[in-house]
Amino acid sequence: MPQTVKGVIARSKGADVEVVDIVVPDPGPGEAVVKVEACGVCHTDLHYREGGINDEFPFLLGHEAAGTVEAVGEGVTEVEPGDFVILNWRAVCGQCRACAKGQPWYCFATHNAGQKMTLAEGDEMAGAELSPALGIGAFVEKTLVHAGQCTKVDREASAVAAGLLGCGVMAGFGAAVNTGGVTRGDSVAVIGCGGVGDAAIAGASLAGATTVIAVDVDDRKLETARSFGATHTVNSKEKDPVEAIQELTGGNGADVVVEAVGRPETYKQAFYARDLAGTVVLVGVPTPEMEVTLPLLDVFGRGGALKSSWYGDCLPSRDFPMLIDLYRQGRFDLDAFVTERIGLGDVEAAFDKMHGGDVLRSVVVVDEAAAAGGGSPA
């Protein structure tokens, strides 16, 4: 039987989000219904509300989530009811040209649920199909996803912390480790020290980088970056970041520079702050109108690689369990990314705090009892 649950939607561009009744259908072939325990509030959710992704309103927001599989549809073998899972937005197909080349993290045909959740009777738009954020839609008590979007992990992990791997933390960690290939002895600079940038710093530190330089315009964020493993900090309002990074790397520039802002001016800083034959990784998301101009001779003459990182080039089935293991061992502090726990009715206020730079992550706790049932790091 379809279920009616509470969830957070963006009804129209720029309008405040609302908590409404949503109808969740029974899972069809290849689908799963997941009881959401916790879901992080990500900038991408705000982009959806502002119409910055597309105009397929109304949106069911939320995508950085963990919870328990409640039911599965025909043909599902990867998960079963009772499994504790992190939701991901790149459920690989296994058949496209990227998957066939052994690069499933670049999958070009990722899966979403075939059915749609809808607004319940009594709503002014009753029956309207909802567009789930990144194919997930997890600011809701229960959500319908493709079973491939469910990655089973150890139940001892806190849902509040584990869900953050579903987007921002994985994007940052993977930008450094997977896309940037940071390894022992490398020098790394990260421009932009929000949640994604701090995750890149933590990833670089875990991978063995010996110099990790955090760059931001906010001293509060720079202090937090140190707690994630930054060995040096640069306030780019006070000092030219390119010069500062070069000074801290023997005049050479960093081996890997992660740009976690997504703006032309910071991308140029990243380009010139890397060493010859170094790597630039763009993980900050630009807006459609942004353009960057670089002398082609500099692009040629400096060599190296200019890369974009999609979801940290992660493979959820490989990376999520590994990072949860590191969390349980006390080696990767996911809890440190959680600034506050909030309810479904507090998402709009969380967006306001995001604008002010006051939080790394607000996390919506949908099921307090279940989310509290996870263990803590060993």
Rank of each mutant, 00 (worst) to 15 (best):
V5S: 08
K6Y: 10
I9T: 13
I9A: 06
A10V: 11
G14K: 12
D16H: 05
E31M: 09
K35M: 05
V41E: 02
H43E: 10
D45P: 08
H47M: 11
Y48L: 12
E50I: 00
E50G: 01
G51D: 12
G52T: 06
N54D: 14
F57W: 13
L60T: 06
H63I: 10
V69A: 01
V69Q: 01
E70S: 12
G73T: 13
G75F: 14
E78F: 06
P81R: 07
F84S: 07
I86M: 02
W89F: 14
W89Y: 15
A91Y: 13
A91D: 07
C93G: 02
C96P: 10
R97S: 15
C99D: 09
A100P: 02
A100Y: 08
K101Q: 14
W105L: 02
Y106W: 12
C107I: 14
H111I: 03
K116L: 09
T118Y: 10
T118L: 06
A126Y: 14
A126S: 09
L134I: 11
L134K: 04
G135I: 15
I136K: 07
G137W: 15
G137D: 12
F139E: 06
F139T: 10
K142Y: 07
K142M: 04
T143G: 01
V145D: 01
H146Y: 15
G148M: 14
G148N: 10
Q149E: 08
V153L: 11
E156I: 02
S158M: 10
V160R: 02
A162M: 15
L164T: 05
M170V: 02
A175L: 06
A176K: 04
T179S: 11
V182E: 02
V188H: 09
I191Y: 09
C193R: 03
A199L: 08
I201N: 06
A204C: 08
A209T: 09
I213Y: 00
V215F: 07
V215T: 09
V215H: 04
D218A: 05
R220D: 10
T224G: 02
A225E: 11
A225K: 04
G229I: 07
H232R: 02
E238D: 12
K239V: 14
P241L: 13
V242G: 00
I245Q: 04
V256P: 02
V258C: 03
G262F: 04
V280C: 03
V283K: 00
G284Y: 04
P286G: 00
P286V: 00
T287Y: 10
G303H: 11
L306A: 06
S309C: 12
G312S: 12
P316F: 11
D319N: 08
I324L: 13
L326D: 10
Q329W: 13
E340Y: 01
L344Y: 15
A350Q: 06
A350V: 09
D358F: 03
V365N: 04
A370P: 06
G373I: 07
G373L: 04
G375S: 12
